[in-house]
Computed example of a mutant assay.
Amino acid sequence: MTTIDFTLRRDAFGRLNLTAADGTVHEGVAPVRAFPIQAPDEGLALVNTDGKEVVWIDRVDDLPPATAALVREELAGREFMPEISRIVDVTSFATPCTWSVETNRGPTEFVLRGEEDIRRIGTESLLVSDTHGIQFLIRDQYGLDKHSKKILDRFL
């Protein structure tokens, strides 16, 4: 369990500042997930501007509600990984090709450079990178609809 011996506040510029139990202030800390896909709310570090860990948090839920809200808010502002819920269409089964997908953030299209831009993460999840470096998550490839699975199988 995480021992809460620090306070976390936003400064006038919107940056997170951490004050340790001994009074040491760390300005501009940022939360970094250890396992962003498999365990997003477990194993989190607050790092300083040099990237050095200042505090380790076992579980976000162990934090006081106001502190947990600040951490989640900061993570939401820094992370952008839409989840693909359906593959609507692809322009070709040869790469590069344009994928039309539905995500948790709405419908979109992106260009897949090659099959190597689809990476397995665990047994069910896939990470798909587009030509701009944006990563799309397919949390459960086996839970997709039949049409989406058929398209995806052609690339795997």
Rank of each mutant, 00 (worst) to 15 (best):
residue 6 F to C: 03
residue 99 W to K: 11
residue 11 D to F: 09
residue 14 G to M: 01
residue 130 D to K: 04
residue 18 L to E: 02
residue 83 E to Y: 10
residue 103 T to Y: 06
residue 40 P to S: 08
residue 109 E to W: 04
residue 120 R to Y: 14
residue 29 V to N: 04
residue 27 E to V: 13
residue 76 A to T: 11
residue 141 Q to K: 04
residue 153 D to W: 04
residue 47 V to P: 01
residue 126 L to V: 09
residue 11 D to C: 12
residue 1 M to F: 11
residue 155 F to W: 02
residue 97 C to R: 11
residue 63 L to A: 01
residue 140 D to E: 02
residue 135 Q to H: 11
residue 101 V to N: 07
residue 44 L to F: 11
residue 106 G to V: 05
residue 31 P to E: 05
residue 107 P to T: 14
residue 66 A to C: 07
residue 58 D to N: 07
residue 22 D to S: 04
residue 113 R to G: 15
residue 137 L to H: 06
residue 149 K to Q: 15
residue 53 E to Y: 05
residue 13 F to T: 15
residue 143 G to I: 01
residue 84 I to K: 02
residue 116 E to L: 15
residue 64 P to D: 07
residue 66 A to F: 13
residue 81 M to K: 09
residue 68 A to S: 06
residue 114 G to P: 10
residue 130 D to A: 05
residue 97 C to E: 13
residue 11 D to A: 11
residue 114 G to M: 09
residue 7 T to V: 10
residue 73 E to N: 07
residue 122 G to F: 13
residue 69 A to H: 14
residue 71 V to T: 08
residue 1 M to C: 08
residue 152 L to R: 04
residue 81 M to P: 02
residue 28 G to A: 02
residue 11 D to G: 10
residue 113 R to F: 15
residue 71 V to C: 10
residue 88 V to C: 05
residue 144 L to G: 12
residue 10 R to E: 06
residue 41 D to N: 11
residue 105 R to E: 12
residue 131 T to G: 00
residue 57 I to N: 12
residue 142 Y to C: 00
residue 5 D to F: 07
residue 55 V to C: 04
residue 30 A to C: 10
residue 153 D to H: 03
residue 73 E to S: 08
residue 69 A to Q: 13
residue 12 A to T: 08
residue 88 V to W: 04
residue 7 T to R: 12
residue 35 F to N: 01
residue 10 R to C: 03
